[in-house]
Write a protein that binds this DNA or RNA. Structure first.
Length: 563
RNA sequence: GUUACAGUAGCUCAGCUGGAUAGAGCAACGGUCUUCUAAACCGUAGGUCGAGAGUUCGAAUCUCUCCUGUAACACCA
């Protein structure tokens, strides 16, 4: 039921066509305070045309409004405040949620359209750091939100498994490495070679030439180079997958950069056919002046490809394979300019999905204000952070709920939940200066707080003798429950908005609002009391449980029934 | 230097397309477990919304200028 439309109608009927219903609908606002009602109409807009003071307009108008469907309609200053009929509203909301269950809030706006999501994308032979967490977790959540909105997301782990760094890696491995070392501890040792390479090439710049040679060999299909590349890739993936498992994230495809290695000619040919490629200082560029952008470098002066060459191939492939409704790239905000260039180049090429290409940027993670970088050794290992969180969650369980069954698994859900939720709670684009203690908080507005609220709801349902709320009249006469009911009603709207903005934080904030309202209700009203309203109250608790669990699920966070 | 993004309580952040006395969470101080999980709830304290102009009935929110911070800016990704 659209209560905003109902209020709009009430106002329309009291007016003489001074405003269109669309304007009224849009002008209606939600008062901050419950004491000011549920929806409010500010009369300022009418002041000019009616030549009256807003306060006077409000007083006149309220007398013409038919208030029978409301608890009451009141004037306060220039505002007309509508108080909805709480029992009816509550019954509507609860009936809907109980009937729809986890599907509550689902819509079909996406009409099944394919949405490839470029996400996670760790680099082979480098450890996954907190930066990759962001792309992984944001992409994963957006995929779930898209599904809830009727799209068909395709999570693509666009592995960084190609590029000049492999030349460097091979040089490093051959000079200072050994097979045993890599077998024993792949990523640690590969990183060691890589870091050493960067240290030594400052003294011996000819190392860079060697690295370039090796990368050329790799591109040309040289046997040794290819063998090493494959091996490094395989070992790295093993480690990545254990982290993904811990996080509970999966992918539909792992089409890394190498996958597109033999698919780049097509893009280059289109560029040539359309005469978009120009030579500049020995390299090939596309001029983007009409977009207000610098030229995009497509081929290096030695003819080697670049990131963008592969991204063009990727776009062509996705265009052909998926005919995407949306084309998403969850990549750090430092690449915003690059994606503007990519989009412009694709537009010039006439690639269809360029129009629907969205870079979904997220803020940088720093330590003491400094950027992370593998080669300098300034890095936060994702796996270590997750383990620290899981360990702490385990400790908390031993203190608070020592008899809990399945402790390890729940510690994982809570610890990982804290990290994921912490990442998704705030606007994507905020930068984060990493402090471990900040990540390991389980109180206040955190993932565990929301999980705990859900577990409390489930606990009540377990203790209830019968949960036969299906036959309930769903009528609750309790002011303490009102805020919770209102928030439950908002869920479908929040799902749409989060999808439109590609913003998981909207879901996270919503889940906190709901958890907070429910905890308040829980603290002020006794639920398990044998009276007439018990079934309705249980329906409310069940609804809270359903929606909290679903909200967390949209974030990629699990909701244990006990913790 | 150019461009982009940011500047709100001690700290971390919310404040939707401008609207009613600027909100949370941490941290501080105080209160609430013989009764549904205290990872909770309730209260106290804490702010010239970076500065200044402008638009408007009305600005943390829109426009401009300035200050500060971060990032990007051709052979990395």
């Amino acid at each position: 039921m659209d209560y905003r439309a109902q209020v709009t109608n009430s106002i329309m009927n009291a007016l003489n066509d001074e405003l269109s219903s669309a304007v009224i609908y849009e002008k209606l606002e939600r008062p901050k305070d419950l004491s000011m009602g549920d929806l409010a109409f500010p009369t300022f807009v009418l002041a000019k045309s009616m030549h009256m003071a807003p306060n006077k307009i409000a007083e006149d108008l309220v007398n013409k409004i038919d208030a029978t469907n409301y608890e009451k309609v009141e004037v306060k200053g220039a505002y007309i405040n509508f108080f909805l009929n709480k029992p009816n509203f509550g019954r509507d909301v609860l009936t809907t949620i109980i009937a729809e269950g986890a599907a509550y809030g689902q819509n079909d706006n996406g009409k099944g359209g394919n949405v490839p999501i470029d996400m996670s994308s760790p680099n082979i032979a480098k450890p996954m750091s907190m930066g990759h967490l962001r792309s992984t977790v944001i992409g994963n959540s957006i995929a779930k939100i898209l599904t809830k909105n009727g799209y068909n997301p395709i999570k693509d782990n666009h592995l960084g498994d190609w590029g000049t760094q492999f030349g460097k890696l091979i040089v490093g491995y051959k000079k200072w490495g050994s097979e045993e070392e890599v077998r024993e501890n792949p990523i640690d040792n590969l990183v060691k070679y890589y870091v050493r390479f960067h240290k030594e090439d400052q003294e011996n710049p000819e190392l860079d030439d060697e690295a370039r040679d090796w990368f050329r060999k790799l591109e040309d299909g040289d046997e040794e180079a290819t063998y090493l590349w494959k091996w490094f890739r395989e070992e790295s993936l093993k480690e990545f997958n254990s982290v993904y498992k811990k996080l509970g994230v999966g992918f539909d495809t792992y089409n890394g950069e190498a996958f597109y290695n033999d698919k780049m000619d097509k893009g280059i040919n289109i560029l040539k056919e359309k005469d978009l490629l120009h030579e500049s200082q020995g390299a090939s560029v596309v001029d983007l002046e009409k977009y207000g952008l610098n030229p995009a470098l497509i081929l290096k002066s030695d003819g080697a490809t670049l990131y963008i060459t592969r991204d063009i191939a990727t776009a062509l492939y996705r265009d052909k394979t998926y005919n995407p409704a949306l084309n998403l790239y969850v990549v750090g905000s430092e690449q915003t300019y690059y994606f503007e260039q990519l989009k412009a180049v694709l537009k010039e090429m006439g690639v269809k999905s360029a129009e629907n290409l969205h870079h979904i940027p997220f803020g940088l993670i720093t330590v003491n204000g400094k950027k992370l970088s593998t080669r300098s050794g300034r890095i936060i290992l994702l796996d270590e952070v997750l383990d620290a969180a899981i360990e702490l969650a385990g400790k908390q369980i031993n203190e608070k709920n020592p008899d809990l069954a399945n402790k390890d698994e729940i510690a994982r859900q809570v610890g990982v939940g804290a990290i994921i939720f912490g990442d998704l709670k705030n606007e994507r684009t905020n930068n984060i200066d990493f402090v471990l203690e900040d990540q390991l908080r389980f109180e206040g507005e955190t993932g565990p707080y929301v999980q705990y609220s859900h577990a409390r709801a489930e606990s009540i349902l377990r203790k209830a003798n019968n949960t036969n709320y299906n036959n309930s009249d769903m009528l609750i006469n309790d002011a303490n429950a009102w805020e919770t009911l209102r928030i439950l009603h908002d869920f479908p709207k929040v799902i749409q908005s989060a999808c439109k903005d590609f913003e998981p934080s909207e879901i996270a904030k919503y889940s906190i609002r709901l958890a907070k309202a429910f905890n308040k209700y829980y603290a002020h009203s006794k639920i398990l009391v044998e009276d007439q309203e018990l079934p309705a109250r249980l329906a409310l608790v069940k609804s809270v449980s359903i929606v909290l669990k679903e909200a967390l699920s949209l974030l990629g966070v699990e909701a244990p029934d006990e913790m």
